Computed example of a mutant assay.
Amino acid sequence: MTRVLVSGGSGFVGRFIVAHLRRHGYDVVIGGRRPPDPGCFSTGLPFVPLFLEPDRDQTAAFEGIDGFVHAAFEHVEGKYRGGEGDDPQGFCRANVDGSIRLFEAARAAGVKRCVFLSSRAVYGSRLAGAVDEVSPPEPDTLYGEIKVAAEERLGALARIDFVTASLRVTGVYGDPGSGRPHKWTALFSDYLDGRPIAPRLGTEVHGDDVGAAVRLMLEADATDVSGTAFNVSDLLLDNRQILSVVQELTGCPHPLPEASPAADYLVMTTDRLRARGWQPGGLARLVETISAMMSGGKTA
């Protein structure tokens, strides 16, 4: 497999996927409503218009494409949960019906593999502990419901010549590129300026590790991944842990926020993905990334 179309390839997560696939020899095509902004990538990439519009026939966009990675998502800017704003019907139409239409178009055009970027939101806000892919989805947001619906329909489309997989991705961190602020810009600024920081706990994975998971889905034996969902997560982090790296790098004297009890959070296990060779960067990659963020440098 050599030529892959990535919908939403110029978005925050999509950019990591594109960069990772290119580094590993893939010919990548960006799909989206508009071409990437100048400077989004180090070199120009092929672009095809692609829309989350269920009434539009977009089969031609998949001509000559071997793999399709669907990372596009239509939402109110800055929000996924609650991304429907005041139009839940339009939100569902675009992200469920529009996604299904793209999956069907890809299969009709002869695309061999399709990878869908899902979310940990499919598990909802159940009790703290650990959850694996065998656990049934229990979404408690419209965002989570949409991801479950798209996963299920994609799985139903799987066949011997159309291999499908869904990746349930947690919070993603890393350099956003093009001079954009990173996800912790405000957090770092508040800490360095001495403003109070509220405790917060969450799971994170580096964007390049998401790209590695996508590549694994494109390259793994079809019988091992098709029609299957995989959790994608790496570190359980609170604001204190993140800012402790900033404190060590800068010598900032301001106190760190209180620690958040790890026992109060639901963690996705990733044994299914790791058993197939996926190895995220862990704490070493976190420290490397924050160091680059603080110095204005870049990481993968």
Rank of each mutant, 00 (worst) to 15 (best):
K183T: 04
D161V: 04
G202V: 00
H182I: 01
G194T: 01
E204T: 00
G171K: 11
D190G: 06
V172E: 05
T170R: 00
P196N: 06
R180W: 01
R200K: 14
W184N: 12
R159Q: 12
Y173D: 05
L167T: 02
P199D: 07
D161L: 09
F162N: 09
L201H: 05
G194W: 10
Y191A: 03
V205R: 02
L187C: 06
S189L: 12
I160A: 14
V163D: 07
F188N: 00
R195F: 11
R180H: 04
G174L: 05
L192C: 07
G194P: 11
T164G: 03
A186G: 10
R180D: 10
G177N: 09
T203G: 12
S189T: 15
F162K: 04
G171C: 11
P181H: 04
T185I: 04
V205F: 03
D209S: 05
A156K: 09
W184L: 14
R200Y: 14
P196R: 09
G174M: 04
P199C: 08
R168S: 06
P196T: 07
T185A: 14
V163L: 04
V172L: 01
D208P: 02
A165S: 15
Y173C: 07
H206N: 06
H206Q: 01
V169F: 04
V163S: 11
R200G: 11
V205N: 01
V205C: 03
V163I: 15
P176R: 02
F188K: 03
P199K: 06
D209I: 01
H182E: 10
R195G: 02
L192M: 14
I160D: 15
A198F: 07
D193G: 09
A158G: 05
T170F: 14
